[in-house]
Simulated scan of single mutants.
Amino acid sequence: MADIKEHMKIIGKDGAHVGTVDGVEGDRIKLTRNDNPAGHKDHHHYIDRKLVGSVEGDVVKLSVNASSVPEMEASGAKI
């Protein structure tokens, strides 16, 4: 988590864009609101550090596909 910095890109295991780092809060990465879908601009979304596969340069690579991130959130899983 110490390698994760503001404005880094976050991509899924499949290489698809997930979001942009707004900051790190505890064991979670806070995403910028700019990447939120319509209807979700009024709050931040978070990704649990358990989903981070690696940090390479200015990119955070997740261990799951990008499409899995919203599904995990909708199911109530801590992401």
Rank of each mutant, 00 (worst) to 15 (best):
G12Y: 12
A2N: 15
K41Q: 15
H7Q: 08
H40M: 14
S75T: 01
I4H: 04
E6P: 01
A77T: 12
E25K: 14
A38N: 11
D35P: 00
H44C: 06
I10G: 01
L31K: 06
V52H: 09
D3T: 05
G23C: 05
G12C: 10
N34R: 12
I79Q: 07
E56Y: 01
T32L: 05
A77K: 15
E73A: 13
L51G: 01
I11V: 14
K13I: 01
I79S: 06
H40C: 08
V52A: 06
L31C: 04
P70W: 08
I4Y: 05
A2V: 12
G57L: 10
V18C: 11
P70Y: 10
L62D: 03
V69K: 10
L31P: 03
V69E: 09
K9V: 03
I47Y: 08
V52T: 07
M72H: 03
M8L: 06
R49V: 12
N65H: 07
S67G: 13
N34G: 04
D3F: 06
H40A: 14
K50P: 00
D58N: 12
S54D: 15
D42M: 14
D35A: 07
G53P: 04
V55Q: 02
P70M: 11
D3A: 14
K30H: 07
E25L: 09
H7W: 12
D3W: 07
A2I: 11
H7F: 11
V52C: 04
I10N: 02
P70H: 10
S63G: 03
K13C: 00
V59L: 01
K61P: 00
K78Y: 02
S75R: 14
V60Q: 08
K5V: 01
K61C: 02
V55Y: 03
H45R: 14
G26S: 08
R33D: 07
S63L: 05
V21Y: 05
L62H: 05
I4L: 04
I11P: 00
L31Y: 06
P37A: 14
P37C: 10
K13R: 15
V55S: 02
A77G: 02
M8K: 03
S68V: 09
N36G: 05
H45N: 12
K9Y: 00
H44T: 01
V21W: 05
V60N: 06
L31V: 01
M1P: 12
D42H: 15
D22I: 00
K41H: 13
D27P: 03
M8S: 01
I47H: 05
T32K: 13
R49S: 15
E6D: 15
V60R: 07
K13H: 06
E71M: 14
H40P: 00
I79C: 09
G19M: 09
G15W: 11
K9F: 01
G53F: 04
K30N: 06
V60A: 09
D14E: 06
